[in-house]
Amino acid sequence: MTMAGGLNTERLLGWRLPSPGNTMLGLCALFNITLLAILLLTLLGIKPAHAQEDLSCVGQDLVEIMQRDEPQKYQNLQAEADKVLNGKGTFWRIEKDGLAPSYLLGTMHVTDPRVLKMPKGAQEAFASAKTVVVESDEILDEQKAAVAIFARPDLSMFIDGKSITDMLSTQDKQRLEDGLKQRGIPLVSVLKMKPWILASFVALPACEFKRKAQGASFLDKKIAEDGVASGKSIQGLETLVEQIQAMADLPMDFHMKALVETLSLGDRMQDIMWTMTDLYLQENVGAIMPMVTAVTPENSDADEDGYASFEKRIITDRNHVMAGRAAPLLAQGSVFMAVGALHLPDEEGVIELLRKQGYTLTRVN
């Protein structure tokens, strides 16, 4: 299948595209900082009831189980992962003659203490950098984030009198209510939110909500906060409204299918997130999406046009924006740049786009 401009969607990320819901749940935790900003604002507004409850973040490594119980499926997963250009590595050195070296870290937008440690050498690179670049610097200021997000309520909320429950079956409404309840969020408090926001809420394990409710920072925010504390210049590559607009540009039907599929996974999401985190810590970014596809049910009603648009609008388009806006900052040298890890791989990933600007990128570690 080919999109406008001759881009083959099956090569967009180096693997065959999964179904809409699979794509959504595979990316929401890694990609969109705006989802985390909205989540934080929601938590501040409703004070989740289980904020002090002891919730375990431990899950099963689904790849290990697959390797043991379904060796052929595991081999197929590894073969798909190996096809992904720049699929190995989350930490890269950026060099060009005459400039002090800069660094690129692929992040995971979670509060997991293992992720917050960053890979070997990253802390030293951060300490030596003069400028810290993140997806959006608006995450540093909750009031600024709130103003930015709610300046365009039409992008994240139903403003025409509709509610999310108007579009769900009785069964899916109950699943949504149960999933939100496990995370301390009453359904009535988020009835007007768009489905892509609610999908991100129920895709994140309850333990993430507990940590965020207690004030823990996800990796990108912590990097920005540490940069401020160190007196470094903090620069953002996107605005929160731009990120919201990218999600809002996709068809409502696509978002509803993604929400329903995410709801159908229920408690299995904790195992999926645990496995995604394991692969990230192994710096095996290229295996993340094949894993998500392998361990979630096939969608017989897959919307190929919808998820092709998703890949282009949420990944590829933003990769070009990030690389383009990073250019004048990298030209000054001594930059520590942190963006979602799945923005790094493939022919139109940030790594290759920076190489086309004349930079040499080398995997660290």
Rank of each mutant, 00 (worst) to 15 (best):
R114G: 11
E70N: 13
R93D: 03
F91H: 09
T107V: 02
D112R: 09
Q123A: 12
D112C: 09
E95Q: 05
S102F: 06
D154M: 02
A199L: 14
Q143S: 14
E124V: 12
Y103G: 07
Q75Y: 08
K192G: 04
Q182C: 04
R152D: 13
K83P: 03
T170L: 07
K120Y: 13
Y74Q: 10
G87F: 14
A81V: 15
L99C: 11
S156C: 11
A129G: 06
T107L: 07
L180C: 09
M108H: 13
P71N: 11
R152G: 03
K117W: 07
Q78F: 12
Q123H: 12
K181A: 11
E138R: 14
D178M: 13
I185H: 00
D97T: 00
F126E: 08
I185C: 01
S102D: 07
A151H: 14
P195M: 07
E95R: 00
L140K: 00
P71Q: 11
E138W: 11
T170W: 00
G121T: 06
L104I: 04
F150P: 03
A79R: 13
I149C: 06
A129F: 03
L116G: 06
A145T: 10
L116S: 10
F158S: 04
V147E: 15
L140Q: 05
N86Q: 12
L168N: 05
S169T: 12
A122N: 07
L176K: 04
R183F: 02
T170M: 08
W92E: 06
K194D: 06
E124T: 12
Y74I: 06
K120Q: 11
R183V: 01
G98S: 05
D82V: 01
K192A: 10
Q182P: 04
I185P: 01
L77Q: 08
K96Q: 14
K88H: 07
S156D: 02
L187M: 09
D97G: 00
S136G: 08
D172M: 09
D82E: 12
T131N: 07
L77K: 02
E142Y: 14
V190A: 01
V134D: 10
A145F: 10
K173W: 08
L77T: 15
G161N: 15
S136N: 10
K144Y: 06
V147D: 15
G98K: 00
S128V: 15
D160C: 15
L105M: 07
T107H: 05
G89H: 03
R152I: 09
P119T: 08
E177T: 04
S136Y: 03
V110N: 01
M118H: 06
E95S: 04
D160M: 15
K173P: 04
T111C: 12
R93C: 10
V188F: 01
K194N: 05
S156Q: 06
Q72H: 15
F158I: 08
I149V: 12
G121E: 09
L187D: 09
A127G: 11
F91N: 12
V190W: 01
D97H: 01
T170P: 01
V110G: 02
S156V: 07
A145R: 08
Q78G: 00
S136W: 02
V115F: 02
E135C: 11
A199S: 13
P71A: 12
S169N: 03
S136L: 06
V133H: 13
A151F: 10
K96C: 07
F158C: 02
P113V: 07
T165E: 09
K130F: 02
M118Q: 11
M108V: 00
